[in-house]
């Protein structure tokens, strides 16, 4: 849940990068950390990783400066994607204001995307949140792997399978090159702030 201090005109909200294991959530945060240095308020922290797998979560605080007279700070988190870390994902999701779902474009990861999206839906529901109402953006990551000869799902297929009912903004991306990362983040922040405005009327 966002912390909104109208007296001091400060907003602090939480955006969580969700998705199956190895879909590129941490890579997204790493790119944001590197590319948006002016906005980054502190170092990126990865709590407990095994090799390049996130076991707990990554954290990156960013500042968006003044928006409609309010100082906006955003905490970016990633969850561990592997199925067995469900409990940790529930903890990290606590107090979430917006979600970026990072789907893996590789054809072999098709089912993992669907399982993870279902998991997101269930975890949000446990917290009394609705996946159709929470600010949510989909990212179809690893588009670059097609050039390396790996079977990648067409965007239309991914859109049909993951976004047919949700109808939320979606972006093709390659987190390793940074393509699409900025667009995804901008859209997610926009939706999140709009939702907070609707709820708390912080911008007059």
């Amino acid at each position: 849940m966002a912390v909104i201090n109208l007296k001091n005109r400060q907003i602090e909200c939480k955006l969580v990068f969700y998705g199956p294991g190895r879909s590129g959530k941490t890579t997204n945060l790493e790119f944001i950390h590197k590319k948006f240095q002016k906005q980054v308020l502190g170092k990126m922290i990865s709590i407990d990783t095994e090799g390049d797998r996130t076991l707990f979560f990554d954290f990156l605080p960013i500042g968006l400066g003044k928006i409609k007279g309010c100082d906006v700070k955003v905490q970016l988190y990633t969850v561990p994607g592997q199925v067995k870390y469900k409990a940790t994902r529930q903890l990290v999701l606590k107090g979430v204001d917006g979600v970026v779902f990072v789907a893996d474009s590789l054809a072999v990861r098709r089912e993992k995307n669907m399982v993870s999206l279902k998991d997101l839906h269930e975890n949000l529901m446990k917290m009394g949140l609705n996946i159709r109402k929470i600010p949510l953006v989909l990212q179809y990551n690893k588009r670059d792997l097609e050039t390396k000869g790996l079977p990648v799902m067409p965007l239309e297929k991914m859109e049909h399978e993951l976004n047919r009912q949700l109808k939320v903004p979606s972006f093709p991306a390659s987190a390793v090159t940074g393509e699409g990362v900025g667009n995804t983040l901008t859209a997610a922040l926009k939706l999140t702030l709009q939702s907070l405005q609707k709820e708390f009327k912080w911008a007059h």
Binding site: R22, D52, L106, V108, R109, L145, K148, G149, L150, P151
Partner: peptide
Amino acid sequence: FQEAELYASHGL
């Protein structure tokens, strides 16, 4: 084989 190597290099 190339696919297998690429998957392995991506941690899959």
